[in-house]
Every structure is written in C-alpha cells, then in structure tokens.
C-alpha cells in the first residue's frame, strides 16, 4: 500500500458498540469470565472452533531473509525520504509495491458447522 492512500477517520479508527462477528466473540469470550471451582460441568464439548496458533517469532533466518527482501523492495521515494535517491540504484530491483509479505497467519476457523 502506498502512503498516499492513508486516510480519513472511517478507515483508521472504527468503533463498534458490541462484538460483530465470531472472531470478535472468540477473542473476547473464550477463556475469559469467572470460573467457579471444579463443581461445574463444562459444556464446551464439541465446539467447532480451531484457532491456528499464529504467533510468529522473528528469529529465524527465513524471517530475516523475508525482511531483507521487503526492505529491498521498499520504494523509499514514496515515503518522502528524498536525498537517498542514489541509494536506490543497486539494490532496488523489485520496485513493485511488495505484495503483502506480511500475510502473517491469522486466526482461522475450521469446521463447517454453522452451529
């Protein structure tokens, strides 16, 4: 994304009075709330939710190479860093916008039950 498309209130801050979807609710509710001893039966038997653990640890060579690639792809002119123009000559072959190297895993839900 280019810096030029940054924007208005509606696209950088969103407010909602209540959780609006399953992802919100899972995030908010699962594993939270009061727990009362062990007396209680717990009904969450077959809840058809799988959250893929997506924590990414930035510590591997692969990750570093991915970052290096992203840095090389940066079109620094776009970010108003005038004056480093000459630096762009060599390393900046991929002038493209960089296609979301940060696809980073997100919570995903498997299962097909609609409830």
């Amino acid at each position: 994304m280019s810096v030029a498309t940054q924007g208005t209130a509606s696209n950088y801050l969103q407010r909602a009075p209540s959780p609006s979807g399953l992802a919100d609710v899972v995030d908010l509710i699962l594993d939270k709330g009061l727990v009362i001893d062990a007396f209680v039966r717990v009904a969450v038997i077959g809840i058809e939710l799988v959250t893929i653990d997506a924590r990414i640890v930035i510590a591997s060579v692969d990750t570093y190479l991915r970052f290096a690639e992203a840095v090389n792809r940066l079109d620094l002119m776009q970010t108003e860093t005038a004056g480093i123009n000459e630096l762009r000559d060599g390393g900046d072959k991929g002038k493209g916008k960089g296609e979301g190297m940060a696809k980073g895993a997100k919570e995903a839900f498997s299962g097909n039950g609609k409830g």
Partner: peptide, 13 residues
C-alpha cells in the same frame, strides 16, 4: 446432551 457451537458462543455474547 449439549454440544456447544459457534452460534451458541454468539448467543452467550
């Protein structure tokens, strides 16, 4: 025989 599902999570919320 309760089987909690997605919509139950939403209903709880």
């Amino acid at each position: 025989r309760v089987r909690a599902k997605r919509r139950d999570l939403l209903a709880h919320s």
